[in-house]
């Protein structure tokens, strides 16, 4: 497969990143993973590759609480960039916060498909990837 499923994790928590990468491996779905410890690095990568769809991820799992640039700051910057991006990217917010304020704020961004609470179980991750694959084929 020339262009395998590209999962992107934006989170400063290395343990979390490790658990997602491990879970994805268990899914037996061909994919590649990219990780960014904060929003700024992720945004830099996307901006650099905005005209290169192959390099861009299919799915981003975005944390809220990160140093340098948190999830919301990333979304704000991404919103301004979205129209110029040559690829449809599914963004899910994944956070340990159960604060309704955070949830509401996350859902106010059209780019965010859903807000998910940590921990993200592997079957849930599987469903996300499958759903994204189906929707992006059209």
């Amino acid at each position: 497969m020339k262009n395998p499923f590209h999962l992107c994790i934006v989170d400063d928590d290395d343990i979390y990143r490790f658990t997602i990468i491990q879970s994805a491996k268990f899914l037996k779905i061909e994919h590649k993973t990219s990780v960014f410890p904060n929003g700024e690095e992720a945004l830099t990568y996307i901006t650099e590759n905005q005209n290169n769809p192959d390099a861009l991820p299919h799915l981003i799992l975005l944390d809220i609480d990160m140093p340098i640039m948190d999830g919301f700051q990333f979304l704000k910057a991404y919103k301004a960039l979205e129209a110029t991006i040559a690829k449809e990217i599914a963004i899910y917010m994944v956070s340990s916060s159960v604060d309704p304020e955070d949830i509401e704020k996350a859902n106010s961004y059209t780019a965010v498909i859903d807000y998910l609470s940590k921990p993200l179980k592997s079957d849930k991750l599987k469903a996300l990837i499958e759903k994204t694959v189906v929707e992006q084929k059209h």
Partner: peptide
């Protein structure tokens, strides 16, 4: 405290849960 529980307590706890799942697999 909510902030602390959600970010500083829940996060490691959820990590622990995930690690336990992975450990099982």
């Amino acid at each position: 405290f909510t902030q602390i529980t959600s970010h500083n307590l829940r996060a490691p706890v959820s990590n622990l849960n995930s690690l336990v799942d992975i450990y099982k697999m």
